[in-house]
Structures are given as C-alpha cells and as structure tokens.
Write a protein that binds this DNA or RNA. Structure first.
Lengths: 224, 224, 224, 224
DNA sequence: CATGAATGAGCCTTCATTCAT
DNA sequence: AATGAATGAAGGCTCATTCAT
C-alpha cells in the first residue's frame, strides 16, 4: 500500500466512522473526539483531512454518491424501456439505502435540511443523480411511452418525495423492516403517474423478467 | 387580562420568537439568551415555562397543529365528495404552511427528523392530522369514488411525502415563490393515484407478476 | 454592599489577579482557568465581565492609570516651579511603579508593545498622563524657567524612555533594588536637558560639522 | 557552494523569514508551519536547525548583532573625539535599525522583554554592544572631554532608553518616517548630558529641598 | 539530510441551566 | 412571578513537536 493509498484508506475509515456516529447521535451530539477514538485516529488527523467538523459531515456522501451514480448509469445502459428504467432506478436507490443505513440516515436526516450543504461538492453529486430521473422521464415522454402532459418537475418530486418519506420512516421507526418491500408499491405509484390513459392494446415490453428489470443485453425487444 | 391570560400570552410570545429564531439559525446555533432577548423575557422565565431548550422546541407545534386540525375538521364538514376533500385538505395544508413559514421551517427542517420528537404531545397532534387523510381515503374507497385496490398507507405517503418535499424546496431555495402555485399539480397527482380506471383492462405494462403484484388476483392479463 | 458594588469588587479582584499572573507568566502562558482559580471565580464569569482574554489584559491599566492621573493632577496643583513639577511627576511615577510592580510589569513588558493596545480605552488614559509631561515642559519654556530651544517631543521621549528603561531593568533583573534610588539621577538628567545655558559661548565641541559625526581622520579637534 | 555553506544559507533564510513573520504577527501568533512555508523549508527542518520555536526566536539577533558590533568597532577606530564617537555610534545604531526594521521589531518589541532571552548567546552580543557605549563614556570622562561627575550607567540608560523609545514609536506608529531624522535631536540630548558646565554658579533651582519635590505653598522660589 | 504525516496536550470560549433575591 | 448573575461542563480547533521513511 503506497502512502497515497494509506491516506485514502484512513480517510475512508474516518468517513465511515463519522457516518456511523453521526447517524446514531446526530451532528451536534457527536464529538470529534468520539469519531477519532472510534476510527482509531487522532482528532488532529481528522482536522488535517477535513478541516472542520461540518466539512467532515459534508464529505460523507461524496464518494458514495459517485458510486451510486456510476452503478445507476452502468445498469441503465442495459435496460430498454423508460418504465423499466424507472423501476430499476427506484430499486437501485432503495437497495443502496438499505445497504447503507447509516449513510442514509446522515443524508436524509441531517444533510438534506442543511442550507449550507447545498453549496457543497457532495450536493453536486446528488443533483447529478436527480438528473438521471429527469432524463428518464423526458425520454419516456418523447418516445411516447409516457403521457405527454406530464410536468417532469412534479413527477420527479413525487418519486423522490415519496421514496424519501418512506425511507425516513424506515430509519426512524423501522417500518418497513425491509425497504425493498416498498419497491413494488412505489413502482405502482410511478406507473399510475406516468402511464398513458388510453393504452390498448397491451404494451408488451414488460413481459417477462421484470423482477430484476435488467434485461440481458441481447434481449429481444418488442417493436413497441 | 387576567394573570392566567398574561402568562399564556407570554408563552405564546416566547414560542413565536423561538420559531422565528430556530427557523433562521437552526436548533443548535440558537441560544436561549437570544430567544430571551428577542422575546423581551429573561432566560430564567423561559426555563420556568419550558424546562428545557429542547422542550421549548418541541412545544412549538402544539397549539398551531391543534388549530390546523380544527380548521380542517370544520371545513371538511362543508364539503361533499372524497376527491373534493382531498383537494381541500391539500389546499389548507399548503395555505397553512404558506402563512407560517417560520413554524413550517421548524417543523419540516428540524422536528421531523428528531427521534425524540416522536414521543411528544405535539407529535400526537400531527398524527391526528394524518388520520384525517387516512379517513378521507378510506371513505373514498368505500363510497366507490376511488379505486379499491389502493394501499392507503402508500397513497398517504405519496401525498405527504410529495407535499413536504415541495414545501422543503420552497423553504430552502424559495421555489416555488408561492406554495399555492403547486396546489393544482399536487392535486393532479392525487387524482391520478386515486381515480378509478374506467378503461379496461388495466395498464398492460404491468402485465405479469413482475414488479407490482398488486393486481387483483383474478385480473385478466394480456397475452404478452 | 449593593449588587453593583459587589460586581465592581469582583471585577477589581479579577483584574488584580490577572495582573499578578500575567506579570509572572506572560500573556500567552497564562490561562484563564488559572486566573479564575486564583481569583476564586469561574472562567465563565471572567468572560462575562471581560469578553476576551486579550480584553481582560487591556482592561488592567484602566482604573489604575486614572488613579495615577488624579493623584498627579492633585499634587501638581500644590507645586510651584516647573522644574519642581518635573521632579514631582517623575517621583510620583516611580513611586507608583514601585508600589504596583505586577501592574507595572504588565504595562511595560506586555502592553506597551502590543499594537492593538493602542486603540484601547486604557491607552487613552496613558496618553492623558503623557500630556501632563508636555504641559509642564511647555509651561517651563513659556515662563522662561527652561531653555527655549527645546523640542518638547524629544525631551519627553527622553524622560519617558529613560525612566521606562530603568524600570524595565528593575523588573527584569531587580536592579536597582528600590526604584526611588534612581530618582535623583533621573532628575539630574532632566535638569541637564532643561536648564538654561547661562554660559557663553556654546559648548565648543558642537561647533562645526557634526552632521555626519564622522570626522575625517585629520580633522582638527577642539582642545576639549 | 559546499554542503556546509548550503546549510548555512538555509539557516539564514529561515532566520530572515522568521524575523519577517515574527515582526508582523508576534511570537505566539506565528506558527512554525507559516515560517516553514514562507522559507520554503519543512517544519521538521526548522526543528533540525533550531530545536525549539523559542530558540529560533532567540537565534535571530545572533549574527546581525555581531555584524553591527564589527561595523561599530571598525568605524570607531577612524574617529577621534569621544563626543564624535557618541554621535557615530548613535547614528550607526539608527541606520542599522532603519535598514532592518523587521529584525528591529523582533528585538525591541519581542525579545527585550523576555526574561529567558537574557541567558542567551544573542543577549551576550547585545551586551557587548552596550559596552561600546560604556567605553566611550569612560574615555570621554578620562580625557576630560566630558563632565567628570557623570554616572555612566544612567547616561547610558538615557542614551539607550531614549533611542529605543523613539525606535519603538517608529515601529509602532510610523513616526518619524525616517529614523535618521531623529539623529540630531538625540545627539543634542547626549551633548547636553555630557558637556562640561563652563558656567558658574550651578543651576539655582536645584538648590534646596528638591528631595520631596513638593514645596510648601508659600515657598520662596528662586527668580529663575 | 529532508520531510510528510501524525498526534498529544491544552486552551479559549460558549451555553444550558440553576438559584438567590 | 420574574430575573440578574454565576458556573459547570464540554468541545472544537490549533500547534509545537516527533518520527519513520
């Protein structure tokens, strides 16, 4: 492990620990000394890396949001059909939250309501992820798969708002036990909002393995 | 003004001031001394009334939520039709937020993410308001005005989650300028979720037991 | 003792203690906690009264300099003759330093070399005391008691500079044991600077090209 | 440049930088890291060379004071007449200060009031320079050029004290613009202190009860 | 020799909270 | 009932200093 890598590893360790402690005790009730102890570093080192307690907090989502973004972009390429993409994105988000509950708590319970967070590099990443939603909606509208008279901003707000509302509930009162249980219900809602009213005959493109939503690359797609 | 009333007036003054300051600077960055000065009281008096800084915070929504509840109940009695009630409730909520931005900021940016707030008298009031939603949805389903295969919890989550998402945006970046501008869009979304599918059969791209699984068991599925 | 007086007494106690500790350990090596302990107060109280460690330091001379000023003005009224006034002022200063060694150490070893101190209320008092010197010199010149071709600024600088130089020596190496021992010597110097030249012609060795001070090697020197 | 010289050059660079930063921000408000950055070295190197922050500070005058000493000794050899030497020494000091304002600030505003500085090699050099003054005075007295009844210690204190007082003023408030402007005035003062009293009889206003300085109100004052 | 990196130690400052009046 | 005053407790942050490479 080179020097560079060692440092990077320490930073990650600190960020993970910080997420853990912040998520449990909140920002103000967490002390740097606590994070230092738990991450087996010194307080001074934390300040070396992150300059400020708040900046440490703000740095938590940076890397993870990038990963999520990459994963989503990667998988979306493999998927045909806007509605399938919606489902995939929703699912990936929920899985991601499910797998990183501490990070999610920091993000949804602490960061999202901090005005200073908006001017952050991390927030930029978040906006990049939002744009994936927007793109999918636009594509769906243009391809004729979705209703045309959609206000994308409000649809997105519904997706995000509802999802986050459910995730926050999951974080705060532990309901539902498993976030993915909400997946189908959420998807239904999306469908209701996006579907064309006069559809007939049946849209064939969901037929088959929608469970994953990820079609094999060589999947034969219906003519539409 | 009797002694009792005088005291009540002072409490209200303190609560209003607290909402103002908390909403501007957040909970931790607000000091009791600040609130005391701004409300022309002494710190000691604040402690006399509210015992704790956090308890002061938690007391802020109590009275206002009761008012909102009363107002909503009162007006709902005058309205016929579940969908009309949905619209009315949504509108009243938005108007209420619009008229009490500082209170709203405290509620949505500070209190909603505090685990200890859940065990609070104020939170009880909030749940009472939520139950109004639930009731309307149930009624609509039973009267046949809404689809039957509705999961009330998720529908409510969508209403609340979307609305709060929009309100938070309004609080944090000032968009939309006027909350009521969102009213119609929000209502459209509600309608989409609640309205009966007159046409048949159901959305084809849900065909198959994929994602959703919420179809009536005997639903006729397209051939695919 | 009224509340007002009690507070004033505590402030004085803190200032005295601060002078003691600062004089012994210097500004930076002194901790507020030390002063709090030694003055039997809490650190928080010190900050209540003085807002800042540096401001505490700067506040030390305020009252004492006023006292010195009053004492000097009072006594000067009783004295006739400018040279006698010079002597009196010098003596009073030295006595004052002698009696307040800790305060003097703070003043001469710490404060006088702090640029921020100049903009201080305390420093204003110090300048008021300096003006007493100026006044005496002016009066002496106008009354004809002193030489006319005196540059008051430089004479004052000599008085103050020499006195402080001696006092600093006293503080740092304890020499002389008693400051007042220096009194007569200092006064002699003052006299030499102020007295009229009765004799004529002027001191011979000033004649000529002192401008450079560096005479050519073969310069003709006066007999001396 | 040999290895030895390279190291010497780096030390000088560090010392110069240190003087610059210390003079601007004071000792405590200067960080080693700052000096390291400004001198393009590492903090560790500074510790290699100077072991301690304070020792770095104390090392600043060492070389320069030696240079000043050498220069003064060199030039004094070329000068005849004690009073001329006084003038020369004064001038050389002022020129030196003028040319090294940062160094001078460190010396007069920081070091001179530090008790630990006295036990320093640098301070030894300073004392060597003081002895030049003493020597000149002694010589002047012995040669009959100066008054015999001089107390050399006080005369020196007057020279040094006055000069430093003026230099400190120059450093702190920028007055006079050019230090050498003070040169003649300072010299006049020296002359006044050193010159023989040709005239007779002695200054009348010293007669009598100057001990107290406080004359009885009805005291008979000399005509002046 | 030079230095990047790590840290122990500590201080100033802030408040929530209490209490005597 | 109301409050001016006092403080205990704690935490963010800074550096001088060390050491492994």
């Amino acid at each position: 492990m080179t020097g560079m890598e060692k440092i990077e590893a320490r930073k990650v360790k600190i960020l993970e620990t910080a997420a853990k402690v912040f998520s449990k005790k909140g920002f103000q009730d967490t002390t740097i000394s606590e994070i230092a102890k738990a991450s087996r570093t010194s307080e001074a080192s934390i300040y070396d890396y992150f300059t400020t307690k708040e900046n440490l907090l703000f740095s938590i989502p940076l890397e993870l949001m990038r990963q999520l973004h990459d994963v989503m972009e990667y998988h979306l390429k493999l998927i045909r059909g806007s509605i399938n993409k919606v489902y995939a994105v929703m699912n990936m988000q929920l899985m991601f939250y499910q797998e990183h509950p501490e990070f999610t708590a920091v993000l949804l319970l602490i960061l999202k309501h901090n005005r200073r967070f908006i001017d952050t590099e991390s927030h930029k990443e978040i906006r990049k992820n939002l744009r994936i939603f927007d793109r999918i909606i636009e594509e769906g509208v243009q391809s004729g798969e979705f209703r045309e008279n959609i206000n994308p901003y409000y649809v997105r707000s519904t997706f995000i708002g509802t999802m986050e509302h459910i995730v926050i509930n999951w974080l705060m009162v532990g309901n539902p036990k498993n976030l993915l249980d909400a997946s189908d219900q959420l998807f239904d809602i999306c469908v209701k909002l996006l579907e064309k009213d006069e559809k007939l005959p049946a849209c064939p493109f969901l037929s088959g393995n929608c469970g994953s939503g990820v079609l094999p690359e060589n999947a034969e797609l219906p003519a539409g």
